[in-house]
């Protein structure tokens, strides 16, 4: 792939999205390195989801520049889609298909061969401990299992980058821990992870963290540096310092 030439998985340069008079994302600029776990934090309504949608090729930016996996966010959205995985806020597997059928479907979409799907599928089901549930409908699984499965499906085709939009919402702490084990595993395999979350303990697991306030990036650094900058011991207070000045949403 031609993308090996650039050291960055994601480049955003003044990326902006307007809806009428409302500037949802206001000239954000950042770079995400290959294999990095990049935390994308912000209060509700700060513009995180809109930013992610632009990077995934679901929404065309109003202005600014951006590339994802080396492809342009204006003109090469379909090529971007070939190289990313995505797991949205809303649970997005088919509830009326079984575990096996969901894996087969999403893997098939990316053109993986049948044999390859079969072997990898067995491995995955065993790893997630879903052997008993393989033929059950996904709708019947507990939320935590669904989320782990959705993540595994999102990285099943080994994309360069995976976008996770609040993947652990509503999940218990133990499952959240297991979920992050899966994220680390994916990052170790060379997949860049771009993750939004409201859990600030999860921010500590990221290599670098950006915090969005009112459509702008208010801070961007490693968790350690950010805490030093704001003279506090927790990401919680860093976030609070930044987000309490927000004019929109209700953090």
């Amino acid at each position: 792939m031609s993308t090996t030439a650039t050291p960055h998985s994601i480049v955003a340069d003044g990326l902006t999205k307007r809806f009428g008079d409302f500037v949802a994302v206001d000239a954000v600029s950042f770079r995400v390195n290959k294999g990095e776990i990049f935390g994308f934090l912000g209060a509700n309504g700060a513009g995180k989801t809109t930013a992610i949608r632009m990077l995934c090729g679901l929404s065309i930016p109003t202005s600014g520049k951006g590339t994802v996996a080396g492809f342009d966010v204006y003109t090469q959205t379909e090529r971007i889609k070939r190289n990313i995985g995505y797991m949205s806020q809303k649970f997005s597997l088919y509830e009326d298909l079984s575990v096996t059928e969901n894996i087969e479907f999403f893997a098939g979409i990316y053109g993986l061969s049948r044999d390859r799907i079969r072997t990898k599928r067995e491995e995955l089901i065993a790893k997630l401990g879903l052997v008993q549930e393989a033929d059950k409908l996904v709708g019947a699984l507990p939320l935590g299992w669904k989320q782990k499965l959705a993540f595994s499906v999102a990285v099943f085709h080994q994309p360069q980058i995976v976008f996770l939009d609040e993947p652990t919402g509503g999940v218990d702490p133990v499952t959240r821990r297991q979920f992050w084990d899966l994220i680390y595993e994916a990052a170790d395999a060379g997949i860049t992870v771009f993750v939004t979350t409201h859990y600030l303990d999860e921010a500590e697991y990221c290599d670098r963290v950006s915090i969005m306030v009112d459509g702008r990036i208010a801070a961007l650094d490693t968790p350690t540096e950010l805490k030093k900058q704001f003279g506090t011991g927790t990401m919680d207070s860093v976030f609070y310092e930044l987000a309490r000045g927000a004019k929109r949403g209700g953090a």
Binding site: E78, R82, Y86
Partner: peptide, 13 residues
Amino acid sequence: ETGTIEQINVTPI
């Protein structure tokens, strides 16, 4: 309604 179309739209289908 279920949000699965979003998942379809981020794939190269």
